[in-house]
Computed example of a mutant assay.
Amino acid sequence: MAEVAAPVGRRERTRRRLLDAARELITEKGVAGLRIQEITEGAGVALGSFYNHFASKEELVEAVVGESLSALAETVSRPTGADQDPAELVSNAIRRFVARAYEDPDFARLVVHLEHADALFMSAVWPAAHAALEEGVAAGRLKPLQVDLAVTTILGGALSLMRAIVDGRIGPGAETAYAEMCLRALGLPARQAAAVANRPLPPLVDATG
Rank of each mutant, 00 (worst) to 15 (best):
Q192W: 05
A177S: 14
E134T: 04
E88G: 00
E41C: 05
L34S: 05
V112F: 09
D167G: 05
G187I: 11
E135Q: 14
L159M: 06
L201Q: 08
S77V: 09
Q37R: 15
A164N: 03
R169P: 03
A131K: 04
A99P: 00
F121T: 06
V111E: 03
E134Q: 12
A87F: 01
G42S: 11
D118L: 02
L161E: 00
L142I: 07
P189T: 04
Q84M: 13
D118Q: 15
N198F: 06
L60I: 12
R78Q: 11
A177Q: 13
F54R: 12
P127E: 00
L25T: 06
A55H: 09
A82W: 12
A2R: 14
A46K: 14
L142T: 01
S77H: 14
E103W: 01
A73F: 02
E58N: 13
A139L: 07
A71T: 02
N198K: 10
L149M: 08
F50C: 13
A190Y: 12
E88D: 10
H130M: 02
A139S: 13
P203E: 05
Q146H: 14
Q192R: 13
T152R: 14
T208M: 06
L159G: 03
A108W: 01
A124F: 02
E67T: 08
D206R: 13
A190R: 15
L114W: 01
L18S: 10
L120V: 12
P86D: 08
S68P: 05
V196S: 03
A32N: 04
L72R: 10
V65H: 05
R10M: 04
G209Q: 10
E41M: 13
R191H: 11
L186F: 03
Y51K: 04
E59K: 12
G209E: 11
E103Y: 01
A129P: 02
Q84C: 08
I39N: 10
T80W: 15
F107A: 15
G157Y: 08
L161H: 04
G136K: 01
T208P: 01
L120D: 02
D148P: 00
A108H: 09
L25P: 05
V76G: 10
V31R: 14
T14K: 08
T40R: 03
S77R: 03
L89V: 10
A101R: 04
A117E: 05
S70L: 08
G48A: 12
I165E: 03
R23N: 06
A131L: 01
P79K: 02
A101Q: 09
V64N: 07
S70Q: 12
E67L: 14
